[in-house]
Design a protein around this nucleic acid. Structure first.
Length: 861
RNA sequence: GCCCAGGUGGCGGAAUGGUAGACGCGCUGGCUUCAGGUGCCAGUGGCCGCAAGGCCGUGGAGGUUCGAGUCCUCUCCUGGGCACCA
């Protein structure tokens, strides 16, 4: 039961009541339509975007932080006269919907759209400046139809192609599994041993752009270094030597093995050659070697996840073949099929140099192969690997002494030796220096229902035929069943049957759908013209692109952001984005998580039991059982350390939630959610409201009007700098300080009202509802959301008097207050005259006095 | 192993090479209130001291500087990312 109010909406509350004011102002913004993005040539444009959410049905507190940050930026840019685009949509395709269908019998579409409705109403309570008129979900046929149309454009430009690739195949569920669905080599649902199976799949030619995607990172000045370096590593550019070993006694057509090495300088230490089980030679040998076939089959049973390969023991199978060393043809090296060599990287074959590679050494010791050092430290001693030491792998930049080098000088760095070795080899007709990238092409085929259908048709006569654009969108059929294993599209009675777009004969529709990363690789562009009948509208994308500020979690540092960068390039090639948009995100900010303590007890069997925060008071359960407290960690349902934003908003209001998630930590770092902190935030907002009431009711005349004005302008300056530099926590700290100043001020009414209105404005990006309420109460014109941002008067920022610390030998002894522009020598005299300074000097004569104007005086003896 | 961030009060965290600990939480004391998620005032790094004041203090060890949390060298610890990548 809330207390009563004065009559009518215009009367101010006597107490801050979030539940009362928040819906009111949300409605006011809504009916003023102030957040609908409108192109306006008279203003600079600003596109702020937060990574759109997966519609799980529940907003979590991490979302609140993410969107609160974007909203601060959006509101600030709005107030500083920008035409702001701040859209929101849904990353709505993907596995959870299919899982829900399997587990609960709901249709993935119904489940998804119901979740979107639920989440949208949760969003509404946050009071964000979102332009909902541009909303779309990636599972809307209008959206994915345009995606299909772009797929066809990409196909025409050669940006998509088909090739065979290995997938995780669950033989019981008859389905392809994502890496995360494979646990210990078993399918997560069926428990069946997962096989590696080769399927023909669609790929984007992202690797053709590896060099460009790498080089362009250097120009992304407003991206975090961390993200750029993660992308650099992922792209993985390397320079090395590719050459062939002559093979003796191989099967027909196999008289050489191509290898790639980044360490050609270690060639004289080579003691074996390893090839991937998927290498053509291994496949040829398998045919009449049952043991090898069994070994390879076992290797293939491992998942395709790299971590999994990593954990596996390094094993090899001696093929019985051998190759000749290129520089010493009398020497032969055995050829092993090895489980740790990937067909996808380099040539699928390596030479092993056990002395200078830990993995090769492990392998050599296991199979009793020679270990031959090529170089040793330039100085000092070390235990050579041949004498039981570890593999010697110094940084490539370190100079070492080559004992079996064949190019360059005796003492040189690895880098120099590699270059010399490549030159030498090329000069002697042994191989070629080549640059390779770790980045592989992006496989987009998914053997699933709830994704964007790939718009091609398989015709017995014409092969793979692109669908006609006028037939788009190729919509997913609604009548599907999830009660059996496999892809529902595959066994749909009619959906697959279509005439060939080319010859008209009966043909089959492709039943694979697209990876959901495709959906999220261009949504930012679609927001510029969500209703267009082409993927984008040239005028709109020319006006709104690029995204000026993109905000999201660092977990998307690599894939989503790299794919989007590729996609923007591809869209440009097909005429869907202007050249300036090939790097679609001008500035990127990666925000930290919201964490929470974890509470646990143990049951009778000693198993850990987790407890919700609301069950715990003073580190005890209701029945008095003491609770173990584990330091803050990422919120997770299983750990029960989650806070529900809806509950928080019910209890404190959206402004409090927004204020708190921004206040306690720098935005790029994690913030710990604490109940005490949230309560403190709520109390502070209530206090700000009281301060505003007090300003309204202040005496007409008071003292310190000028001082309060100066303080107000200093606050404007500091808060503005804080917001512009993403120092939201610093801006909020400054707002606390300013509120304290105002509450203590004895200034007259008009000065106080001006200060309180400014306080409300400066807070409005974080606490928009409260700010509107105060603005209205204090007679502000129109909506605060549309009011121009206050400007600090530089003249008011300058202090007449300043306090300077006085040090003796670098230790603070006193402080003096002097006129701002007092000449140095007079400052010096004042400092030396200080009682405390004289005491510290203890009669000694100062050797030197350093005066830093406006800052400090240091007396040196 | 490699690459990034970070180590500052009881806690979250501030500090263009210039008064370390802003601001908040917590805590202590006082006042206030129809005790309605109270409000206000004061204090709060450690040690010594009644106080004035002094000494110590930003993971550790050195260094540069009139002056170092900040710069340099070495080192320890924590968090994150990457990796059978040839």
């Amino acid at each position: 039961m809330r207390h009563s109010h004065g009559p009518g909406d215009q009367a101010a509350m006597d107490r801050y009541d979030a539940a009362k004011i928040e819906p009111k102002w949300q409605q006011a913004w809504d009916s003023a339509g102030c957040f609908a993005a409108k192109a306006d040539p008279s203003r600079p444009k600003y596109y702020v975007l937060e990574m759109f959410p997966y519609p799980s049905g529940n907003l979590h507190i991490g979302h609140v932080r993410n969107y609160a940050m974007g909203d601060v930026v959006a509101r600030y840019k709005l107030a500083t006269g920008h035409a702001v685009l701040h859209p929101m949509g849904w990353d709505a395709f993907g596995l959870p919907a299919e899982n829900a269908a399997i587990e609960r019998g709901v249709h993935p579409g119904d489940w998804t759209y119901a979740n979107i409705d639920a989440m949208k109403s949760q969003f509404a309570r946050l009071g964000l400046t979102l332009d909902w008129s541009r909303e779309f979900a990636t599972c809307d046929p209008e959206y994915y139809g345009q995606q299909q149309s772009m797929f066809l454009d990409f196909l025409e430009k050669g940006l998509v192609y088909r090739k065979n690739a290995v997938v995780n195949w669950d033989p019981v569920d008859m389905t392809v599994l994502a890496n995360e669905q494979v646990e210990d080599g078993k399918g997560w649902r069926s428990g069946a041993t997962v096989e590696r199976r080769e399927l023909t799949q669609w790929f984007f030619r992202i690797s053709d752009y590896a060099e460009d995607l790498l080089a362009a990172l250097d120009r992304l000045d407003d991206w975090p270094e961390k993200v750029k370096s993660m992308q650099r590593n992922w792209i993985g550019k390397s320079r090395g030597l590719q050459f062939a070993f002559g093979l003796d006694g191989g099967p027909d057509g196999h008289d050489r093995i191509e290898v790639y090495t980044t360490r050609p300088d270690t060639l004289m230490g080579a003691s074996f050659v390893g090839i991937s089980p998927d290498h053509p030679l291994a496949r040829a040998l398998e045919a009449d070697n049952a043991d090898l076939a069994a070994f390879s089959a076992e290797c293939r049973r491992m998942g395709t996840a790299e971590e999994e390969l990593e954990k596996a023991e390094k094993r090899g199978f001696d093929s019985g073949l051998s190759v000749r060393h290129p520089f010493d043809t009398a020497r032969t090296l055995p050829v092993y099929v090895a489980n740790f060599i990937l067909m996808d990287y380099g040539t699928g074959a390596i030479f092993g140099c056990p002395a200078h590679d830990a993995r090769d050494l492990e392998f050599a010791r296991k199979y009793d192969l020679p270990v031959v050092s090529v170089f040793e430290p330039s100085s000092g001693t070390h235990t050579a690997p041949e004498e039981g030491g570890a593999a010697y792998v110094p940084p490539k930049t370190e100079a070492v002494r080559y004992i079996r080098g064949f190019a360059g000088t005796e003492h040189q760095t690895g880098e120099a030796a590699i270059d010399a070795a490549i030159d030498f080899c090329e000069g002697n007709g042994v191989g070629l220096g080549v640059t390779k990238f770790r980045l592989r092409d992006w496989g987009l085929s998914r053997q699933r229902y709830w994704g964007c259908p790939i718009p091609v048709v398989h015709c017995d006569g014409c092969g793979v035929v692109a669908e006609k654009k006028e037939n788009l969108p190729i919509e997913l059929p609604r009548d599907v069943e999830f009660d059996r294993s496999g892809n529902p599209l595959d066994r749909h009675p009619t959906w697959r049957d279509v005439p060939c777009p080319s010859c008209g004969q009966p043909a089959r529709r492709e039943t694979d759908t697209m990876d959901t990363f495709v959906d999220s690789s261009w949504y930012y562009a679609r927001f510029t013209s969500p209703g267009a009948t082409t993927p984008t509208d040239p005028d709109e994308s020319a006006y709104w692109m690029n995204v000026d500020q993109y905000i999201g979690g660092v977990e998307h540092a690599i894939l989503h952001l790299l794919y989007s960068r590729f996609f923007a390039r591809a869209m440009h090639i097909c005429g869907h984005l202007p050249a300036k948009a090939i790097e679609p995100f001008d500035a990127l900010f990666t925000q930290g998580m919201v964490t929470h303590e974890i509470y646990q007890t143990r049951d009778a069997q000693g198993r850990v039991v987790y407890h919700f925060p609301h069950e715990v008071t003073d580190k005890k359960l209701a029945d008095g059982t003491p609770v173990g407290v584990i330091p803050s960690a990422k919120m997770s349902k299983s750990k029960r350390n989650v806070v529900d934003p809806v509950e928080i908003i019910d209890r404190f209001g959206a402004d409090t939630a927004r204020w708190f998630v921004l206040s306690d930590s720098p935005p790029e770092r994690d913030v710990e959610w604490t109940d005490a902190g949230a309560e403190a935030a709520a109390k502070h907002l209530a206090r700000v409201y009281r301060i505003a009431l007090a300003a309204r009711d202040a005496e007409q005349a008071g003292t310190g009007d000028a001082d309060l004005r100066c303080e107000t302008h200093k606050a404007i300056h500091d808060v503005t700098v804080g917001i512009e530099s993403f120092g939201f926590n610093a801006a909020i700290a400054r707002l606390y300080a300013f509120a304290n100043t105002l509450s203590k001020s004895r200034a007259g009414r008009s000065a106080q009202i001006e200060a309180a209105r400014t306080l409300a404005q400066l807070m409005s990006p974080m606490t928009p509802h409260l700010s509107e309420e105060i603005w209205q109460m204090l007679g502000g014109e129109g909506l605060i959301a549309l009011a121009p941002w206050p400007r600090a008067d530089p003249a008011l920022l300058i202090e007449d008097e300043i306090t300077m610390a006085v040090q003796v030998n670098g230790k603070r002894r006193d402080e003096i207050t002097v006129a701002r522009d007092l000449p140095k020598d007079q400052v010096e005299t004042l400092a030396l005259g200080s009682e405390a300074v004289r005491r510290s000097l203890d009669g000694k004569a100062p050797k030197k006095v350093i005066v830093v104007p406006g800052r400090i005086v240091n007396v040196v003896v």
